[in-house]
């Protein structure tokens, strides 16, 4: 479980996160929605130990992301937006390197199993620089689940992908959640994706969390809205007013 309490982050001249409190339960697929510059990546950076909060706390599986950062890193998987990996190395070499950094034992067996699960075994000896963006994204996901993390953080995982690539990634994430029981936390601004795979959503605007609930509850609460897009704009406009 991820629990963030009163999280605030200041950059010079800007408050990127403003008293954000949030809970993500085990096994959920949480879609974190917000416009560009809303604070999604800042929150994700704090959750993944890349950045320190100015105040507040974040606990993942009862471990503090600041005090127990090395332990937290051992149980999280992460896929940044537009990661290019090491182009000169093959898929297997990339995964072997990153898997070893994640302290994966029997790394080659883990690579085989992960690539098999992602339907990507035939590309294991291809250099990453020869792969399409969608294929590279699969390798990125493979490295993020190689050590079977408890929670997987994804930053705009379908950004820049064509519809087919987007559908592929969506299926892969659903499989990871179902087969490995991994909690998934993803930053996105693609509302259509959220409705297709997320169990829970959070909406953030200008650093403030406007809503966090199960998708079902949100749809019930705003049953007069025809789509998530309409809900999103209504909540956003409500705050703006």
């Amino acid at each position: 479980m991820l629990v963030a309490e009163h999280l605030t982050k200041f950059y010079p001249n800007i408050k990127a996160l403003d008293d954000l409190s949030l809970e993500v339960s085990d096994g959920a697929i949480f879609g974190f929605l917000g416009h560009n510059g809303a604070g999604k990546t800042t929150a994700l950076s704090i959750f993944t130990t890349l950045m320190l909060p100015s105040s507040g706390s974040v606990m993942i599986q009862d471990m503090d992301v600041v005090k127990d950062n090395l332990k937290v890193r051992g149980i999280l998987g992460y896929l940044p937006e537009n990661v290019s990996l090491y182009g000169e190395l093959t898929v297997r070499e990339n995964l072997r390197f990153l898997g070893r950094l994640s302290e994966v034992r029997k790394v080659d067996q883990a690579i085989d199993a992960t690539l098999e699960m992602l339907g990507f075994s035939q590309w294991s000896d291809s250099k990453v620089k020869t792969l399409s963006k969608g294929m590279r994204q699969r390798v990125g996901i493979a490295q993020s689940i190689l050590h079977k993390p408890k929670i997987l953080f994804l930053d705009e995982p379908t950004s820049g992908l064509d519809p087919e690539g987007t559908a592929d990634i969506r299926d892969i994430l659903l499989r990871i959640n179902a087969e490995l029981g991994t909690t998934i936390f993803m930053n996105t601004h693609m509302l259509s994706e959220v409705t297709k795979i997320c169990t829970d959503i959070g909406i953030i605007s200008h650093g403030r969390l406007l809503l966090a609930d199960t998708l079902k509850n949100v749809e019930t609460q705003y049953k007069d809205c025809k789509s998530l897009e309409e809900i999103y704009f209504r909540i956003g406009n409500g705050v703006a007013q």
């Binding site: 993944t48 051992g74 940044p80 990661v83 990153l98 950094l101 994640s102 302290e103």
Partner: peptide
């Protein structure tokens, strides 16, 4: 290339 972010989220100093 974004790989620094990846390395920094691995359990290494």
């Amino acid at each position: 290339g974004g790989t620094l972010r990846l390395m920094l989220t691995k359990p290494i100093p």
